[in-house]
Simulated scan of single mutants.
Amino acid sequence: MTLSPRVAVLAGGLSHERDVSLRSGRRVAEALRSAGVEVTVHDVDSDLVPALTQLRPDLVWPLLHGASGEDGSVRDVVRLLGLPVLGTDPRASRVAWSKPISKTVVARAGVRTPDFVTLPQSLFHELGADQVLELLDARLGLPLMVKPSRGGSALGVSLVTAHDELPRAMVDCFSYSDTALVERAVVGTEVGVSVIDIGGGPVALPAVEIVTDGPYDYDARYNPGRTEYFAPPRLPEDLGRRVGEVAVAAHRALGLARVSRTDLIVDESGEVWFLEVNTAPGMTETSLFPQAAEAAGHNLGELYRSLVLASLNA
């Protein structure tokens, strides 16, 4: 395989996270070009299949956030074209994309995850919203996290600290998904742990500690100023290693490939809790993956080029 591969980056799409995807795609393309890689960037629209058919790149790197980008469907289409794709295969992508399923899989592998229930919007209405909310409060207690069962960038996610906040949280959640995941909120230090595999198996990058004034929502994630990051995190050395081990365990249990980011909470007792995993982590200027890579001493262009070459040589 040539040391100067041609890479097609996919960015954009029609999800709620389109802008983030475009920013991720632009940043990765710039970094790859700085490392001598030939890159083209493509939106996901009716021009994509003809463009890839004509171009025949050595590798396609989807940097798509949201449904079609992370549920495996775009990866399936690229494979139908006979082109290799960087990252997790379509089947494992579908498992990771579903928060309830991914939580169940990692729990079976011995990773702790907060207790949760899933509520389709239709069932929520059929049984009566008030009665279901009472059951949630009684069964899981407060505080609670309400989030879409699929999706990213904290869209539709709410922290509920009082019973009268639940109805609004459910409405916000159902704006982004027809199924809500309601889980017991864990209080502690929030970290994101990125995992890479450039040929020797999955390895955790330094965790990034997230400190924000208020919820770590969409605005806090992508608009500088609201959130402070610490990479490596301000954790004891043994806990720093432990969160990396948990992220790698989740990566392996879910059958992920090349790159992922796992979101975790470390509670006051030092217990590490799995929240969710992302197979297409953001690569913007405020995203956790680039911060972790730089904290580990990686040049982003060279690291991304290594991921490309490892994918082609697998």
Rank of each mutant, 00 (worst) to 15 (best):
16 H>A: 15
287 S>E: 11
238 D>V: 15
36 G>I: 06
205 L>Y: 04
20 V>R: 06
290 P>D: 10
186 V>N: 11
61 W>K: 11
270 G>T: 03
116 F>S: 13
269 S>M: 10
309 L>Y: 05
254 L>V: 08
270 G>S: 04
59 L>K: 11
87 G>M: 10
230 F>H: 15
221 R>A: 10
216 Y>R: 01
208 V>K: 02
282 G>W: 06
169 A>H: 07
286 T>K: 10
115 D>Y: 11
176 Y>F: 15
146 V>H: 00
237 E>F: 08
123 L>K: 13
171 V>C: 00
193 V>H: 05
198 I>Y: 06
236 P>M: 12
282 G>Q: 10
243 V>W: 00
111 V>H: 08
174 F>M: 10
23 R>V: 12
300 L>C: 08
10 L>C: 11
115 D>K: 15
42 H>D: 12
249 A>H: 03
92 A>L: 00
250 A>W: 00
73 S>G: 12
226 R>T: 14
21 S>R: 09
9 V>Y: 03
221 R>I: 03
78 V>I: 14
168 R>F: 07
7 V>Q: 04
57 P>N: 08
265 I>R: 05
205 L>Q: 03
160 V>A: 01
281 P>Q: 13
289 F>C: 00
197 D>W: 06
58 D>C: 04
190 E>M: 13
229 Y>C: 10
208 V>Y: 00
49 V>A: 11
13 G>N: 14
154 A>H: 07
99 K>Y: 02
236 P>T: 12
110 G>D: 09
170 M>R: 04
78 V>W: 05
245 E>H: 03
182 V>M: 02
266 V>C: 07
137 D>C: 07
129 A>S: 15
200 G>I: 01
170 M>Y: 00
6 R>D: 11
160 V>G: 04
33 R>V: 12
269 S>W: 06
144 L>G: 02
151 G>S: 10
27 R>Y: 07
249 A>F: 02
193 V>F: 07
284 T>N: 13
69 G>N: 08
267 D>F: 11
202 P>Y: 04
303 L>C: 07
67 A>S: 14
17 E>S: 10
228 E>C: 05
34 S>W: 02
264 L>S: 04
34 S>M: 12
210 I>C: 13
278 N>E: 11
70 E>P: 05
199 G>Y: 09
210 I>F: 08
220 A>D: 10
101 I>T: 15
147 K>F: 01
169 A>D: 07
60 V>D: 04
203 V>P: 00
61 W>V: 13
155 L>E: 01
284 T>S: 14
145 M>N: 04
183 E>S: 10
142 L>H: 08
39 V>N: 09
276 E>L: 06
168 R>Q: 14
8 A>I: 06
64 L>F: 08
179 T>Y: 04
148 P>G: 04
195 V>W: 01
229 Y>A: 14
165 E>G: 13
159 L>W: 06
130 D>G: 08
176 Y>Q: 10
113 T>R: 12
127 L>F: 09
40 T>A: 14
204 A>I: 06
154 A>P: 11
150 R>K: 03
231 A>C: 09
168 R>I: 00
